[in-house]
């Protein structure tokens, strides 16, 4: 019984990581209606940047995280202004295929630079520390911290969207870019800032990916799929829904893995398809556009 409770808890906390994967994707979609196929590869890239910062530059993990966030945010800004801006307003095919191409470029670049070996970031005591919740039930400190970060990121984003001028500009641009321009909003700049913000979240996800899991240059697509599934399960445009989606994926993966180690990822995918059949618009639908 406690075994299963532990499994369940692990699954819920794993959902925190998936939520972080999904939040950047959700943000880019929410503001730009962009589904970034290279999203997972960018998470892996952020993980490698973290690895370089810690192992080559010998930065402490927290400082490394700050560097990764800055680098990825700047990269996101440049990516949007330099490349993705050309795909805005050109139907679904153009952004989809451009980011697909980008995904292939990133994977192979990382293969060239970092080789195909699996890597991981050593974070010392944090990796093994655990918290006892009474009885035989314990949870890892790191997964707990990831879940805490995911919730904090969502709260911060919610505040940004509802309480700041930039947030209102994001929402207005997402609603109707043309009319937003009539308000004096530079929508290209807004898109670039949104992408920078999305990449900052990707950076956070990447750092945790580096610490918590082993990763390799070709691990991006799998992370994209989890991010995508969490977004769809939660309902497009709903950040709290994304958290619910992430938890559902984490729990189904933990249960599946418990039953048969080969069924972990498969269970998450099946849970996603099941939700799609029962609730095609996700659990907490916000926008209708899909």
């Amino acid at each position: 019984m406690t075994d299963w409770l532990n499994t369940l808890l692990q699954g819920v906390l794993l959902g925190g990581l998936y939520t972080l994967f999904a939040t950047g994707l959700s943000l880019a979609f929410g503001v730009m209606r962009l589904v970034n196929i290279a999203h997972g590869d960018l998470i892996v890239l952020a993980a490698y940047v973290a690895l370089v910062a810690v192992e080559t530059l010998h930065l402490p993990v927290l400082a490394a995280a700050a560097v990764v966030i800055l680098v990825m945010a700047a990269g996101g800004y440049v990516l949007q202004r330099g490349l993705l801006t050309h795909t805005v307003g050109r139907g679904i095919l153009s952004p989809l295929l451009v980011t697909f191409g980008l995904s292939i470029i990133l994977q192979n670049l990382m293969l060239e630079i970092f080789s195909a070996d699996s890597r991981g970031l050593q974070a010392g005591a944090l990796e093994t520390a655990s918290v006892s919740l009474g009885g035989d039930i314990t949870v890892g400190a790191l997964p707990l911290m990831i879940m805490g970060t995911a919730i904090a990121v969502i709260v911060l984003l919610q505040l940004l969207f509802t309480r700041t001028t930039l947030g209102r500009a994001f929402r207005a641009t997402s609603d109707d870019g043309e009319t937003a321009q009539l308000m004096g909003i530079d929508t290209k700049q807004v898109y670039a800032l949104a992408m920078a913000l999305a990449m900052a979240v990707v950076a956070v996800a990447g750092v945790y990916t580096a610490i918590r899991t082993s990763f390799d240059p070709l691990g991006g697509p799998n992370r994209l799929l989890f991010a995508f599934e969490a977004v769809i399960i939660g309902g497009l445009g709903s950040l709290w829904g994304t958290l619910a989606g992430g938890i559902i994926l984490g729990v189904s993966q933990a249960i599946g893995f418990r039953l048969d180690p080969g069924w972990g990822t498969l269970s998450s995918h099946l849970a996603f398809l099941a939700v799609l059949v029962v609730r095609p618009n996700g659990l907490f639908p916000r926008t209708r556009d899909r």
């Binding site: 001028t165 929402r171 609603d175 109707d176 937003a180 308000m183």
Partner: peptide, 20 residues
């Protein structure tokens, strides 16, 4: 009219002043 559907009345009006 082209109002922003995800913004409230006050947010819509306020956004008009975005240009400063």
């Amino acid at each position: 009219r082209r109002l922003f559907p995800s913004l409230s009345v006050e947010e819509n009006i306020g956004l008009g002043g975005y240009g400063g």
